[in-house]
Design a protein around this nucleic acid. Structure first.
Lengths: 138, 138
DNA sequence: CTTGCTTCTACAGTTACTGTAGATTGTATG
DNA sequence: CATACAATCTACAGTAACTGTAGAAGCAAG
């Protein structure tokens, strides 16, 4: 009682903030499975598709390229994937995620500081550039 | 004693993990100022450019589109920007940043769980998709 | 002075969408 | 039931943000 909430492509788009064309694009890239079709050929989606698409969109907006999203999805998809493979993928992304979190917190802190100083009537000069330490390049 | 560390475009690319062509692209988009040129016409960069480019790259990898990066840069650039304007920009991005942080922490937690279960020899089925609550659509 | 690497401009190609055209279908009134 | 109007279909062209390549010129080492 969940598989077949039966969303049209338009409704799925609405529910996830995704353009209809983008959904078809993800299908073409096999990020989304080919959905069941109605007698007249229209795509029919369920709750699982909605969660999956929401995940894809969120990941993309966090700056993960399509290939990274694909990898993260395999963690969910293949219950049959070996522990070693899962571990490798998960670990690889963990380092990246930690870096992203640290960067965002630094940005956040600086923005809060600027907003605070604004509230007291002062235009603080924003040091947002300096707060992100340059990435160490191998 | 900082303005003129005199980096070539190649060195700047190295220092920030950016392709030379991408640097020229950012210049064209006025994310980077037009640099001083050597007598023979080669671009010469300084420490300020390096920090700025590092910031741009980091922001991009965090999923901020070019226009958002441009806005964040104006916070740093225009000491003359009004307090109201600064506050508006900063606040607008703050909400986005908080959402990104929450998403990344959720992903991180799930990855850590999967890695942990792997270490104990079990293949946990990864619930990473479910951890990101679907974005509420206005 | 030549060999080889870097940089230059200009433009074509790639990734990840986004929009559009023309046909078909589903549905909400008159 | 008709018919208008929105949603969907396929197919393909356009956009954003790079990325690569060609051909010419600069520079440093041997």
């Amino acid at each position: 009682m969940d598989r077949h909430s039966n969303l049209s492509i338009g409704q799925l788009g609405q529910a996830t903030g995704t353009k209809v064309t983008t959904i078809r694009f993800y299908e073409e890239q096999s990020l989304l499975r080919e959905p069941v079709r109605s007698r007249s050929g229209r795509r029919q989606y369920g709750e699982t598709d909605r969660l999956r698409l929401a995940f894809i969109r969120r990941s993309r907006s966090l700056g993960f390229p399509i290939d990274a999203v694909r990898e993260l999805l395999t963690l969910s998809d293949d219950a049959g994937t070996s522990c070693t493979a899962v571990d490798t993928i998960a670990r690889a992304h963990l380092a990246d995620i930690d870096q992203k979190i640290a960067d965002l917190i630094a940005m956040r802190t600086e923005l809060v500081r600027v907003i605070g100083s604004c509230r007291h009537g002062t235009v603080a000069d924003c040091k947002i550039i300096e707060t992100l330490a340059p990435r160490s390049v191998s």
